[in-house]
């Protein structure tokens, strides 16, 4: 249940995260804003190079210095004590107390995020002991309870397993148990089911929904999969070339997508309701021509213009602003009104 009256737990404003690479400056995230309330799932969706993962890593302050740096904007996080902190300027000690405690994160490949030489129970107990000030025994008992909560059978025995003894789905459950062990206010999930089979993906998504119902945390869900967005998100933020091109409640954005990129993306998905039949009577996808832009060489103006069937000279001349079209629904397109279906 989203608590509408509650103030946002996370409010990202005009975030800019840039990377200084050998081949030039990359503005991976360039002026991104969104917020998430307690109990709400906000999905950031985009293709490779859109800046969706860099956005989530910025919130965790896991941008690798010196190449990467948050150049501007703010990341306001409302902690358990009710106080508002800007994570962009928070010191390292503050971030350490927040990470894994009030904000946790799960990644695509659980094998690379778990330590291969310790049993999984120890790894969860370590986080619990660190943040919740419990003794070894109590922390272990709590770890076993968390494993049971995420649906691992015979959790007391499986807690002694090493990561390599578990399947991909089980490892992702362990990661979720670890992420939820300190009852975070914000869970960041970066492609958490992308490496999993579809029947296992369904299990993990159900588990995340259930955990959110029970604990009421906000979830920031990073994915390229529009079907997963449709199932999980209350609100969606569509990114392209480091910028938000459209954002709003899922029911508005997915039923009446306004940005040509959002529409194109939805029509690209096999099984999409936006497919059409060609002259031979075959189902065809509405492919977006061209390639995903290289974030190192973004064109001036709208980054999508070169692939957009409706682009005019004005689109390449200047960057369109993110315009409010309804309460909470925004689109960055000069021509959205003319292009209304």
């Amino acid at each position: 249940m989203i608590r509408i009256e509650a103030p946002p737990v996370l409010e990202v404003r005009d975030l800019q995260t840039w990377f200084d690479t050998e081949r030039g400056l990359v503005r991976s995230v360039d002026g991104v804003s969104f917020s998430a309330r307690p109990g709400e799932t906000v999905a950031i969706v985009g293709e490779s190079g859109s800046g969706k993962s860099v956005t989530s890593l910025s919130v965790m302050r896991l941008i690798a210095a010196p190449a990467g740096k948050i150049m501007g904007g703010s990341i306001l996080f409302r902690g358990r004590d009710g106080g508002l902190r800007d994570l962009v300027t928070a010191d390292a000690a503050t971030m350490r107390t927040l990470r894994g405690n009030e904000i946790s994160m799960i990644f695509q490949e659980p094998m690379t995020s778990l330590n291969p030489v310790y049993p999984v129970g120890d790894q969860i107990a370590e986080a619990i002991a660190l943040h919740r000030n419990l003794g070894r025994k109590q922390a272990w008992a709590e770890a076993v309870r968390m494993l049971e909560l995420v649906g691992i059978p015979a959790s007391a025995t499986r807690a002694k397993d090493y990561p390599h003894q578990m399947s991909g789905g089980m490892r992702q459950r362990v990661m979720i148990a670890m992420a939820l062990a300190c009852r975070p206010l914000l869970l960041i999930a970066d492609e958490p089911t992308t490496a999993l089979d579809v029947t296992i993906q369904a299990q993990i998504l159900e588990l995340m929904r259930q955990a959110q119902r029970e604990m009421g945390m906000a979830i920031l869900f990073i994915t390229h999969n529009l079907g997963v967005v449709a199932e999980m998100a209350d609100r969606v933020v569509v990114m392209y070339g480091g910028r938000v091109v459209e954002s709003g409640p899922i029911d508005q954005v997915f039923r009446t997508p306004l940005h040509p990129y959002t529409r194109g993306l939805m029509a690209s998905v096999p099984g999409s309701p936006f497919r059409f039949r060609d002259a031979r009577g075959r189902l065809r996808l509405q492919a977006i021509p061209g390639n995903v832009p290289d974030p190192r060489h973004l064109p001036p103006g709208c980054a999508f213009a070169s692939r957009c069937a409706d682009a005019t000279d004005a689109c390449t001349a200047a960057m369109p602003v993110l315009e409010a079209v309804a309460a909470d629904h925004q689109v960055r397109c000069l021509r959205w009104k003319e292009l209304l279906p």
């Binding site: 399947s167 789905g169 089980m170 579809v198 029947t199 296992i200 993906q201 369904a202 299990q203 998504l205 159900e206 999969n225 529009l226 079907g227 997963v228 449709a230 199932e231 899922i250 029911d251 997915f254 039923r255 939805m266 998905v269 099984g271 999409s272 309701p273």
Partner: peptide, 22 residues
């Protein structure tokens, strides 16, 4: 398997057969 595929169709959300186990 078919019910586990995430669907873009918002009206088809949540009617799932979730298989147990691995």
């Amino acid at each position: 398997l078919l019910s586990a595929v995430p669907s873009l169709d918002l009206d088809r959300r949540r009617e799932k057969i979730i298989l147990k186990g691995d």
